[in-house]
Structure formats: structure tokens, C-alpha cells
């Protein structure tokens, strides 16, 4: 554990909590892609199956359980409790275009051809593209509320900090997880455009972030 990894995990947690509280307090999930949230719940589910097979640390177990609970609670708010506010018209990204290639790739490129390992690989690849329905939705509607932008900022920070973590681990312990690093770089690239918009519009501008 190093400072980059710990801050990355904390930013990830903050992002998830920001989104959950935003929906809970406003009693509305307007502007939020339910599809992205389902994909994230699927990411956590397929990645954390090792909760049942191996124990790493109390920190590891607690964080996994918290991420899972929050992910499913958010999905529950969007599709059940506040489903009237869910904008399915704008959330029109075709997730099969992500799921099929990601599933195929996880069978082809993995560390071991075992069910758990393939599902872990699937979760890594899927996480790298899971935010696309949300970014697509913002592009389509042309704006995002600032709180949604804060959510995306913390998700992006989490990614960037994980990259720093991997650089640090490579230098200090020679650790290099090729699948996670390559997918992580791809995932972080998706946030670059958003980072630019965030700093030029949300911080300087009014409450909302508009896209050109």
C-alpha cells in the first residue's frame, strides 16, 4: 500500500458516495446514466468473486463489500426508487457494443484460462469502458449538473492516482500487472477530455457544465 493507491481508493469511494447522495437527496437521477451504473455493479461483482476464495486483508475485504453495496444501492435508486426521474431516452448507449468485445477479449487475453481469472479480466476490461454511456449521455444532452461533474472528476482522479500507484510499484517492487495497467491507461484517457472541460467550465463557470 502506498499513498497513491490509498488516495486512489479514497477518491473512488468519494465518487461513488457523491453520486449516491446526489440521487438520494434530490430524489432524482436526472442526467445519470443507469447503464453506466449497471456496468459498474457488474464490474465489482465479477472482480470481487475472490471475496469467497481468498482473504487478503481487512481493508481489502471491507472496501470490496462497501463498493458492492453502494453500487447496487445506486442501481436500486435509479431503477426502482426514483425510476420516474430516470431519463432512458437520453441513456441510449448500446451497451452490447461494449459487453460483447470486452467478453471476447477477456477469453482471449487473460492470465489463466479459469472461470475466476476470466471474470476478473472481464471486470478490468469492462471498467475501462463502463463510463462511456455516462459520457455519451452528457454529450447527447449537452450538459451535466456540477455535482455530476464532481462525481466524474473523482472517478477520473481515482484512475490517475492508480496510474501513479503502478509507476511507484514498478519502481519500488518491480510489480507490473500488464492487463490492469494497459486497461487503466485506456480508461484514464477517456477522462482527459472531461478533465479539460471540468477545469475550464465547471470551476470558472456557472453551475452547469455545457459541452460544445
Amino acid at each position: 500500500m502506498n499513498i497513491f493507491r490509498l488516495s486512489g481508493d479514497v477518491c473512488h469511494l468519494i465518487a461513488i458516495i457523491i453520486l449516491f447522495l446526489k440521487i438520494w437527496r434530490s430524489k432524482s437521477c436526472a442526467g445519470i446514466s443507469g447503464k453506466s451504473q449497471v456496468l459498474f455493479a457488474l464490474v465489482f461483482t465479477t472482480r470481487y468473486l475472490d471475496l469467497f476464495t481468498s482473504y487478503i486483508s481487512a481493508y481489502n475485504t471491507v472496501m470490496k463489500v462497501v463498493y458492492l453495496l453502494l453500487a447496487y444501492s445506486t442501481v436500486g435508486l435509479i431503477f426502482f426508487r426514483f425510476r420516474n426521474s430516470y431519463d432512458s431516452e437520453s441513456d441510449s448507449f448500446r451497451v452490447e457494443f461494449l459487453l460483447v468485445p470486452v467478453a471476447g477479449l477477456s477469453f482471449l487475453e487473460n492470465y489463466a484460462f479459469t472461470p475466476l481469472e476470466i471474470l476478473w479480466t472481464f471486470s478490468i476490461y469492462l471498467e475501462s469502458v463502463a463510463i462511456l454511456p455516462q459520457l455519451f449521455m452528457i454529450t447527447k444532452t449537452g450538459e451535466a449538473e456540477s455535482i455530476t461533474a464532481h462525481y466524474l472528476l473523482f472517478l477520473g482522479l481515482y484512475r490517475a492516482l492508480y496510474l501513479a500507484n503502478w509507476l511507484w510499484r514498478f519502481h519500488t517492487e518491480g510489480f507490473y500487472d500488464q492487463i490492469a495497467v494497459v486497461s487503466g491507461v485506456v480508461q484514464t484517457i477517456f477522462y482527459c477530455d472531461f478533465f479539460y472541460l471540468y477545469f475550464t467550465r465547471v470551476l470558472r463557470g456557472s453551475g452547469k457544465m455545457s459541452l460544445p
Binding site: R5, D9, H12, R47, D50, S54, I56, S57, N60, M63, K64, Y67, Y111, A112, T114, E117, W120, Y162, N165, D177, A180
Partner: peptide, 10 residues
């Protein structure tokens, strides 16, 4: 299966 890395990261 030996090349599989331990999954300590989240």
C-alpha cells in the same frame, strides 16, 4: 495458472 497475480488491488 502460476502466472496469475495476487489481486490485492481494488
Amino acid at each position: 495458472e502460476d502466472d496469475a497475480l495476487p489481486k490485492d488491488e481494488l
